[in-house]
Simulated scan of single mutants.
Amino acid sequence: IPVIDDFKQRFGLDDFIVVADSGFMIKRNIGLLRSGGYQFIVGGRIKKVAKDVEQWIQSIPHEDGQYHEKKLENGDRLIVTYSSKRAAKDAYNRNKGVERLRKAYASGKITKDKINKRGYSKFLKIDNDVSVCICEEKIKEDEVWDGLKGYVTNTSLPPSEVVAQYKGLWVVEKAFRISKGTLETRPVFHFTEKRIEAHVCLCFVAYKVYKELERIIGTLGLKISVDTVIKIAKTITTIRLRLPLNDEIITRTMMLTPEHRSLMPLFDHLGV
Protein backbone atom coordinates (compact mmCIF):
# COMPACT_ATOMS: atom_id res chain seq x y z
CA ILE A 1 0.00 0.00 0.00
CA PRO A 2 2.80 2.54 0.72
CA VAL A 3 4.19 1.87 -2.78
CA ILE A 4 0.76 2.43 -4.34
CA ASP A 5 0.22 5.57 -2.25
CA ASP A 6 3.59 6.96 -3.33
CA PHE A 7 2.99 6.10 -7.00
CA LYS A 8 -0.43 7.75 -6.94
CA GLN A 9 0.92 10.89 -5.29
CA ARG A 10 4.03 11.29 -7.47
CA PHE A 11 2.08 11.07 -10.70
CA GLY A 12 -1.02 12.94 -9.52
CA LEU A 13 -3.43 10.08 -10.22
CA ASP A 14 -7.03 10.44 -9.11
CA ASP A 15 -8.71 7.67 -11.12
CA PHE A 16 -6.60 4.72 -9.98
CA ILE A 17 -7.51 1.02 -10.18
CA VAL A 18 -5.23 -1.84 -9.10
CA VAL A 19 -5.25 -4.75 -11.59
CA ALA A 20 -3.64 -8.04 -10.54
CA ASP A 21 -3.76 -11.74 -11.39
CA SER A 22 -5.37 -14.42 -9.24
CA GLY A 23 -2.16 -14.91 -7.23
CA PHE A 24 -3.00 -11.59 -5.53
CA MET A 25 -6.48 -12.85 -4.59
CA ILE A 26 -5.98 -13.48 -0.88
CA LYS A 27 -8.06 -11.95 1.91
CA ARG A 28 -5.19 -9.94 3.39
CA ASN A 29 -4.28 -8.24 0.10
CA ILE A 30 -7.88 -7.44 -0.78
CA GLY A 31 -8.46 -6.19 2.77
CA LEU A 32 -5.48 -3.84 2.49
CA LEU A 33 -6.82 -2.40 -0.77
CA ARG A 34 -10.23 -1.85 0.79
CA SER A 35 -8.70 -0.20 3.86
CA GLY A 36 -6.85 2.18 1.55
CA GLY A 37 -10.02 2.98 -0.35
CA TYR A 38 -8.67 1.55 -3.60
CA GLN A 39 -10.64 0.04 -6.45
CA PHE A 40 -9.38 -3.23 -7.89
CA ILE A 41 -9.77 -5.85 -10.61
CA VAL A 42 -8.26 -9.23 -9.80
CA GLY A 43 -8.41 -12.70 -11.27
CA GLY A 44 -11.01 -14.78 -9.44
CA ARG A 45 -10.28 -18.22 -8.02
CA ILE A 46 -13.59 -19.64 -9.20
CA LYS A 47 -12.77 -23.18 -8.07
CA LYS A 48 -12.59 -21.97 -4.47
CA VAL A 49 -15.92 -20.23 -3.96
CA ALA A 50 -19.04 -20.82 -1.88
CA LYS A 51 -21.30 -23.67 -2.97
CA ASP A 52 -24.09 -21.39 -4.24
CA VAL A 53 -21.60 -19.36 -6.31
CA GLU A 54 -20.11 -22.57 -7.70
CA GLN A 55 -23.56 -23.78 -8.75
CA TRP A 56 -24.21 -20.45 -10.45
CA ILE A 57 -20.92 -20.66 -12.35
CA GLN A 58 -21.67 -24.20 -13.49
CA SER A 59 -25.07 -23.06 -14.80
CA ILE A 60 -23.50 -20.47 -17.12
CA PRO A 61 -24.03 -21.31 -20.83
CA HIS A 62 -20.81 -22.08 -22.67
CA GLU A 63 -21.00 -19.31 -25.24
CA ASP A 64 -18.12 -17.18 -26.46
CA GLY A 65 -18.26 -13.43 -25.96
CA GLN A 66 -20.85 -13.48 -23.15
CA TYR A 67 -20.38 -11.82 -19.75
CA HIS A 68 -22.09 -13.21 -16.65
CA GLU A 69 -22.15 -11.25 -13.40
CA LYS A 70 -23.02 -12.07 -9.79
CA LYS A 71 -22.96 -9.89 -6.68
CA LEU A 72 -20.96 -11.47 -3.87
CA GLU A 73 -21.85 -11.28 -0.18
CA ASN A 74 -19.12 -8.70 0.51
CA GLY A 75 -20.44 -6.40 -2.21
CA ASP A 76 -17.82 -7.26 -4.84
CA ARG A 77 -18.82 -8.28 -8.35
CA LEU A 78 -17.84 -11.63 -9.82
CA ILE A 79 -17.71 -11.63 -13.62
CA VAL A 80 -17.34 -14.94 -15.43
CA THR A 81 -16.69 -15.56 -19.11
CA TYR A 82 -16.36 -18.67 -21.25
CA SER A 83 -13.97 -19.16 -24.15
CA SER A 84 -14.01 -22.20 -26.42
CA LYS A 85 -10.37 -21.49 -27.26
CA ARG A 86 -9.48 -21.47 -23.57
CA ALA A 87 -11.52 -24.65 -23.05
CA ALA A 88 -9.54 -26.43 -25.77
CA LYS A 89 -6.28 -25.25 -24.18
CA ASP A 90 -7.38 -26.38 -20.71
CA ALA A 91 -8.35 -29.81 -22.02
CA TYR A 92 -5.11 -30.16 -23.98
CA ASN A 93 -2.95 -29.24 -20.98
CA ARG A 94 -4.84 -31.59 -18.67
CA ASN A 95 -4.70 -34.51 -21.10
CA LYS A 96 -1.00 -33.92 -21.62
CA GLY A 97 -0.40 -33.83 -17.86
CA VAL A 98 -2.50 -36.92 -17.18
CA GLU A 99 -0.70 -38.81 -19.92
CA ARG A 100 2.62 -38.01 -18.22
CA LEU A 101 1.17 -39.35 -14.98
CA ARG A 102 0.04 -42.56 -16.66
CA LYS A 103 3.57 -43.15 -17.94
CA ALA A 104 5.29 -42.14 -14.69
CA TYR A 105 3.09 -44.34 -12.50
CA ALA A 106 2.39 -47.18 -14.90
CA SER A 107 3.71 -49.63 -12.30
CA GLY A 108 1.03 -48.56 -9.82
CA LYS A 109 3.69 -47.59 -7.28
CA ILE A 110 4.87 -44.16 -6.19
CA THR A 111 8.39 -43.39 -5.02
CA LYS A 112 9.22 -40.96 -2.24
CA ASP A 113 10.74 -38.38 -4.56
CA LYS A 114 7.44 -38.00 -6.44
CA ILE A 115 5.03 -37.73 -3.52
CA ASN A 116 5.26 -33.94 -3.36
CA LYS A 117 5.13 -33.36 -7.10
CA ARG A 118 2.75 -30.54 -7.99
CA GLY A 119 0.67 -29.74 -11.06
CA TYR A 120 -1.36 -32.63 -12.42
CA SER A 121 -0.45 -34.85 -9.48
CA LYS A 122 -3.71 -33.58 -8.00
CA PHE A 123 -5.37 -36.29 -10.07
CA LEU A 124 -3.52 -38.99 -8.14
CA LYS A 125 -5.13 -40.92 -5.29
CA ILE A 126 -2.58 -42.35 -2.88
CA ASP A 127 -3.33 -45.32 -0.61
CA ASN A 128 -0.91 -46.57 2.07
CA ASP A 129 1.75 -44.21 0.74
CA VAL A 130 2.80 -46.68 -1.95
CA SER A 131 -0.09 -47.65 -4.19
CA VAL A 132 -1.12 -45.04 -6.73
CA CYS A 133 -3.70 -44.76 -9.50
CA ILE A 134 -5.25 -42.11 -11.72
CA CYS A 135 -8.48 -40.80 -10.16
CA GLU A 136 -10.85 -40.57 -13.13
CA GLU A 137 -13.47 -38.89 -10.94
CA LYS A 138 -11.18 -35.95 -10.21
CA ILE A 139 -10.46 -35.59 -13.92
CA LYS A 140 -14.19 -35.40 -14.63
CA GLU A 141 -14.60 -32.79 -11.90
CA ASP A 142 -11.85 -30.69 -13.43
CA GLU A 143 -13.33 -30.89 -16.94
CA VAL A 144 -16.43 -28.88 -15.98
CA TRP A 145 -14.23 -25.81 -15.44
CA ASP A 146 -12.71 -25.86 -18.93
CA GLY A 147 -12.95 -22.48 -20.65
CA LEU A 148 -14.28 -20.60 -17.61
CA LYS A 149 -12.49 -17.55 -16.23
CA GLY A 150 -13.49 -15.33 -13.32
CA TYR A 151 -12.76 -11.71 -12.43
CA VAL A 152 -13.51 -10.00 -9.10
CA THR A 153 -13.89 -6.24 -8.85
CA ASN A 154 -15.33 -3.54 -6.62
CA THR A 155 -15.53 -1.05 -9.50
CA SER A 156 -18.65 0.03 -11.38
CA LEU A 157 -17.04 -0.56 -14.78
CA PRO A 158 -19.06 -2.58 -17.31
CA PRO A 159 -18.07 -6.27 -17.47
CA SER A 160 -16.46 -5.92 -20.89
CA GLU A 161 -14.18 -3.15 -19.59
CA VAL A 162 -13.26 -5.15 -16.48
CA VAL A 163 -12.18 -8.10 -18.62
CA ALA A 164 -10.35 -5.86 -21.10
CA GLN A 165 -8.37 -4.17 -18.31
CA TYR A 166 -7.44 -7.53 -16.78
CA LYS A 167 -6.29 -8.90 -20.13
CA GLY A 168 -3.97 -5.90 -20.41
CA LEU A 169 -1.76 -7.51 -17.76
CA TRP A 170 0.06 -9.39 -20.52
CA VAL A 171 1.74 -6.09 -21.46
CA VAL A 172 3.23 -5.81 -17.96
CA GLU A 173 4.23 -9.49 -17.92
CA LYS A 174 5.90 -9.13 -21.32
CA ALA A 175 7.77 -6.04 -20.12
CA PHE A 176 9.24 -7.99 -17.19
CA ARG A 177 10.08 -10.92 -19.45
CA ILE A 178 11.93 -8.68 -21.94
CA SER A 179 13.70 -6.78 -19.15
CA LYS A 180 14.92 -9.92 -17.37
CA GLY A 181 15.57 -11.98 -20.49
CA THR A 182 16.43 -10.02 -23.64
CA LEU A 183 17.87 -6.97 -21.88
CA GLU A 184 19.42 -8.91 -18.97
CA THR A 185 18.50 -6.38 -16.29
CA ARG A 186 18.95 -9.18 -13.78
CA PRO A 187 21.17 -10.39 -12.29
CA VAL A 188 22.93 -7.11 -11.50
CA PHE A 189 26.71 -7.47 -11.37
CA HIS A 190 27.32 -4.11 -9.67
CA PHE A 191 27.77 -3.21 -6.02
CA THR A 192 27.78 0.57 -5.64
CA GLU A 193 24.49 2.45 -5.72
CA LYS A 194 25.64 4.73 -8.54
CA ARG A 195 26.59 1.87 -10.84
CA ILE A 196 23.40 -0.09 -10.04
CA GLU A 197 21.28 2.96 -10.90
CA ALA A 198 23.25 3.47 -14.11
CA HIS A 199 22.72 -0.18 -15.09
CA VAL A 200 18.96 0.00 -14.48
CA CYS A 201 18.78 3.34 -16.33
CA LEU A 202 20.56 1.90 -19.38
CA CYS A 203 18.25 -1.13 -19.37
CA PHE A 204 15.21 1.16 -19.18
CA VAL A 205 16.49 3.19 -22.15
CA ALA A 206 17.12 -0.06 -24.03
CA TYR A 207 13.55 -1.16 -23.28
CA LYS A 208 12.26 2.16 -24.64
CA VAL A 209 14.25 1.61 -27.86
CA TYR A 210 12.92 -1.97 -28.01
CA LYS A 211 9.31 -0.76 -27.72
CA GLU A 212 9.84 1.99 -30.31
CA LEU A 213 11.24 -0.57 -32.75
CA GLU A 214 8.22 -2.78 -32.01
CA ARG A 215 5.91 0.16 -32.78
CA ILE A 216 7.66 0.91 -36.08
CA ILE A 217 7.52 -2.75 -37.13
CA GLY A 218 3.78 -2.73 -36.46
CA THR A 219 3.30 0.54 -38.37
CA LEU A 220 5.09 -0.91 -41.40
CA GLY A 221 2.96 -4.07 -41.22
CA LEU A 222 5.96 -6.38 -40.99
CA LYS A 223 5.06 -9.85 -39.72
CA ILE A 224 8.19 -10.21 -37.65
CA SER A 225 9.20 -9.83 -34.00
CA VAL A 226 11.73 -7.42 -32.56
CA ASP A 227 13.93 -10.31 -31.41
CA THR A 228 13.98 -11.74 -34.93
CA VAL A 229 14.84 -8.33 -36.39
CA ILE A 230 17.76 -8.02 -33.98
CA LYS A 231 18.93 -11.55 -34.78
CA ILE A 232 18.88 -10.90 -38.53
CA ALA A 233 20.41 -7.41 -38.21
CA LYS A 234 23.43 -8.88 -36.42
CA THR A 235 24.28 -10.86 -39.57
CA ILE A 236 24.13 -7.84 -41.90
CA THR A 237 27.50 -6.34 -42.88
CA THR A 238 28.13 -2.70 -43.74
CA ILE A 239 31.24 -1.89 -45.77
CA ARG A 240 32.93 1.53 -45.82
CA LEU A 241 35.40 2.38 -48.60
CA ARG A 242 37.62 5.45 -48.89
CA LEU A 243 38.39 6.37 -52.50
CA PRO A 244 42.11 7.15 -52.83
CA LEU A 245 41.75 9.92 -55.41
CA ASN A 246 39.34 12.25 -53.61
CA ASP A 247 39.06 10.70 -50.12
CA GLU A 248 35.34 10.21 -50.67
CA ILE A 249 33.82 7.59 -48.35
CA ILE A 250 31.28 5.16 -49.80
CA THR A 251 29.09 3.10 -47.46
CA ARG A 252 27.24 0.00 -48.59
CA THR A 253 25.05 -2.28 -46.52
CA MET A 254 25.18 -5.84 -47.83
CA MET A 255 21.68 -7.37 -48.06
CA LEU A 256 22.74 -10.81 -49.25
CA THR A 257 19.95 -13.16 -48.13
CA PRO A 258 16.12 -13.13 -48.34
CA GLU A 259 16.07 -12.60 -44.57
CA HIS A 260 18.26 -9.52 -44.96
CA ARG A 261 16.05 -8.13 -47.71
CA SER A 262 12.93 -8.66 -45.57
CA LEU A 263 14.22 -5.83 -43.37
CA MET A 264 14.56 -3.36 -46.25
CA PRO A 265 11.29 -1.50 -45.42
CA LEU A 266 12.53 -1.05 -41.87
CA PHE A 267 15.97 0.17 -42.96
CA ASP A 268 14.38 2.59 -45.46
CA HIS A 269 12.06 3.93 -42.75
CA LEU A 270 14.96 4.48 -40.35
CA GLY A 271 17.12 6.00 -43.09
CA VAL A 272 19.83 3.40 -42.67
Rank of each mutant, 00 (worst) to 15 (best):
I1F: 15
P2N: 09
P2R: 10
F7A: 07
G12Y: 12
V18P: 12
D21H: 15
S22M: 12
R28W: 10
I41M: 09
I41P: 03
V42Y: 15
R45Y: 12
I46N: 01
K48T: 05
V53N: 00
I57R: 03
S59R: 00
I60G: 03
P61G: 06
H62W: 12
D64E: 02
D64M: 07
Y67R: 03
E73K: 05
D90E: 04
N93M: 05
Y105P: 00
K112R: 10
K117H: 10
R118D: 02
S121T: 10
I126K: 01
I126W: 05
N128T: 08
I134P: 02
E137F: 15
E141G: 13
D146H: 06
G147T: 00
K149A: 11
K149I: 05
V152A: 03
T155E: 10
L157P: 01
V162Q: 02
Y166H: 08
L169K: 04
W170Q: 00
K174F: 10
K174T: 02
F176W: 12
T185V: 10
F191E: 00
V200T: 14
K211Q: 13
K211F: 15
R215N: 06
R215V: 06
G218D: 07
D227Q: 03
D227L: 07
T228H: 07
I232C: 02
I236P: 09
R252T: 04
T253F: 15
M255V: 02
R261C: 02
P265Y: 13
L266A: 05
F267Q: 13
H269K: 01
G271F: 10
